[in-house]
Amino acid sequence: MIRPFVLWLIWQNERTRQRYHVGNLVHHEGKYMFYYEKHAQRRGVIEALKNGYRLHLAFPDIDKIYVSDRLFGPFERRLPDCRRPDFQEILKAHGLSNDYTDMDLLRATGGRLATDPYEFVAPIYVYGNEFDFDFYIAGWRYYEGERVIDQLQVGDDVKFQREPKNEQDPKAVVVLTKQGEKLGYIPAFYSEFMFRLIEEGGGVYKANIQFIHPKANPQLKVNICVCGTLTPKMKQVQQDMLHDLELVIT
């Protein structure tokens, strides 16, 4: 069975700057599907609704699985126009070739617009006992990143550290350089997974710098790639998190 291409839809509360995993976009066997992330124990759509979120106007039913033969219009409009004179430069900047798919481009660009607080991110992928995901460091502008960015190199290892006394997020996980400089945090919609993995000894992992964009916006400066192996207990935790996706595609 071909693995479905999944992206998480993230909404940011513009007042608190907190981000929530509110929905899932799936491309599988020629069909596009969108549904709200109701089963996340934290930072899902239910918590988002309690903190000012309103359902997307194009997807007003929180219980419905929306299905289409093509990428949904509201998401397609988030892609850069292929008629732009600089479109080839956009592909090059994101490491994409001319045989890209809409999902490839949506993942690479995040589908970000200046007019709203949505973006798409890649999920945590689990295959067998292995897992991987990547993320841009959150909170970059507030810590040591800008001071040391000229010293960072692609491929450098980074360290993670739990921060259970964090008043805003008791599941927060800090990103540190090998020398101990604080670069920021793992985004909250990924952090519980890593928090539990570290806390419970749920597996082994390696994390390193995948991209550095010194001139980008702070939230897109440094991208971290994480890969590792799960213990059977931690694998079951992640399978429980993916159960809703299995219901959608079967």
Rank of each mutant, 00 (worst) to 15 (best):
R3T: 11
R15N: 10
T16G: 14
H21V: 01
G23W: 00
G30W: 05
G30P: 11
K31C: 07
K31L: 09
E37F: 01
R42Y: 11
R43P: 07
I46G: 07
L49M: 12
G52Y: 02
G52L: 04
Y53D: 00
Y53M: 03
R54A: 12
H56C: 08
L57M: 13
L57C: 06
A58Y: 09
F59E: 10
P60C: 00
D61N: 12
I62M: 13
K64M: 12
V67R: 15
R70T: 11
P74G: 02
E76W: 12
E76D: 11
P80A: 05
D81M: 07
C82R: 15
R83D: 14
P85M: 07
D86N: 08
H94T: 02
N98R: 15
T101Y: 14
M103A: 04
L105G: 04
R107E: 12
G110M: 05
L113E: 15
D116S: 02
P123G: 08
Y125T: 09
Y127V: 12
G128Y: 03
N129I: 02
E130S: 15
E130F: 15
F131P: 06
F131I: 01
F133K: 08
I137F: 09
A138M: 08
G139C: 03
W140M: 06
W140S: 12
E144W: 11
E146Q: 11
Q153A: 08
V154C: 03
V154G: 09
D157P: 11
F160M: 02
R162W: 09
K165E: 14
E167P: 14
E167G: 10
V174R: 12
V174F: 08
L176I: 00
G180C: 13
E181R: 08
L183M: 00
Y185S: 06
Y185N: 10
S191R: 01
R196Y: 14
R196H: 13
I198Q: 07
I198D: 10
G201Q: 00
G201M: 04
G201Y: 01
G202P: 01
G203A: 11
G203D: 04
V204A: 14
K206P: 00
F211C: 07
I212N: 00
C225F: 14
C227I: 00
L230M: 12
L230E: 10
T231H: 07
K235C: 03
Q236S: 13
V237K: 11
V237N: 15
D240I: 00
M241A: 14
L242C: 04
D244C: 09
L245G: 04
V248Q: 10
I249T: 01
